[in-house]
């Protein structure tokens, strides 16, 4: 009975898929393989069964990946496929790990040492212990959890708003690998942003898939945008678009245009996708242009805009080779 419940519970694990710098192709293949199996990606680490980091992380990000790993409630599994060909076996391994009862029990016992568990458990005690050395901003007040409180800043309409520093990436799902966008938020509106790119530890070559890579990048971006809009059905279609099936591409393109017209998708995002998929390859986006693109947008729009422009971002192109090569 117990075994049957476990089999049912792990029939389709939810995988939180993160793209490492230069890990575009492995990540795209992971999403396609998830589609083939009928598994769904997890929208946040909180409800995920497995963490999959596509590609190789540079050393400075390893500690961050451990914090992310500690956010998974467990039973949990973790993998870092580095090649497109190893994706199916990696997913099999994740499921086997989730079904391994002894292994999961051992993992749960070891969790007392987790990064985030330590934070949360000693929530109240931490206030007394924290030595404030790491906070050199005297004007920042401390909340009981040792968190930095948001500071005030004048809003666009002259009222004071809380200004909160909120980093997006570098380890985030449906997000370009290696991009760290540190935003300053007024409510849910991004007023300022800083861009940092994390380099891959070694240059990665695009796999020889035989398909037009520039277009594949466009369809991949379209799939990410559709998935961010909660439309997994059309996202699956966009991921399955191959040069041999132009009518599927037409369907997805019509859907994207309709979403743009109805305002479900920011106009800029809709236009760049349309250009990439229908006409020609749009111009690359420099870091300054990216900051300009996201400033003044709300958090949701920022995710959609970044996803739509992902194949054109300078850092992505540098890390995974030019789209036209």
């Amino acid at each position: 009975m117990r075994g049957r419940v476990v089999t049912l519970a792990t029939a389709r694990p939810r995988v939180y898929v993160v793209e490492a710098p230069g890990g575009r192709y492995v990540r795209a293949e992971t999403h396609r393989e998830l589609d083939r199996r009928g598994w769904q990606p997890a929208p946040s680490p909180a409800s995920a069964d497995a963490l999959l980091i596509a590609g190789t992380l540079p050393d400075p990000l390893r500690a961050a990946a451990d914090v992310l790993w500690s956010q998974l409630p467990g039973p949990r599994a973790r993998a870092e496929p580095t090649a497109v060909s190893s994706v199916p076996s990696t997913l099999d391994g994740l499921r086997a790990c989730l079904r391994d009862r002894a292994g999961q029990l051992a993992d749960r016992r070891g969790r007392e040492l987790d990064e985030a568990t330590r934070w949360v458990r000693s929530d109240s005690a931490r206030h007394d212990e924290t030595d404030h050395d790491d906070m050199d901003h005297d004007d920042m007040e401390m909340a009981p959890g040792g968190l930095v409180l948001a500071q005030g800043a004048p809003d666009r309409d002259g009222l004071e708003m809380d200004a909160l520093r909120h980093p997006l990436g570098p380890l985030l799902d449906r997000w370009p690998g290696g991009l760290e966008l540190v935003t300053t938020l007024h409510g849910d509106v991004v007023v300022e942003a800083e861009v940092t790119w994390w380099e891959p530890p070694h240059p990665t070559a695009p796999p020889q898939t035989g398909r037009a890579d520039d277009l594949a990048g466009g369809w991949d971006a379209a799939a990410t945008v559709l998935s961010l809009l909660g439309d997994e059905r059309q996202a699956r279609l966009a991921r399955s678009v191959a040069p041999s099936s132009p009518e599927v591409g037409d369907r997805v393109l019509r859907r994207l245009d309709r979403l743009t017209r109805r305002g479900a998708l920011p106009r800029t995002a809709g236009e760049v996708l349309h250009t990439a998929l229908a006409d020609s390859v749009p111009a690359l986006i420099s870091d300054d242009e990216l900051v300009e693109l996201v400033s003044g947008r709300d958090l949701g729009d920022v995710r959609l805009l970044v996803a739509a422009h992902a194949p054109l971002l300078q850092g992505v192109v540098d890390a995974s080779g030019s789209l036209d090569d």
Partner: peptide, 14 residues
């Protein structure tokens, strides 16, 4: 339901 019942509960800081 089976998957989430098997999954642990978690909380966040503060």
């Amino acid at each position: 339901a089976a998957r989430l019942l098997r999954q642990g509960r978690r909380t966040t800081l503060s």
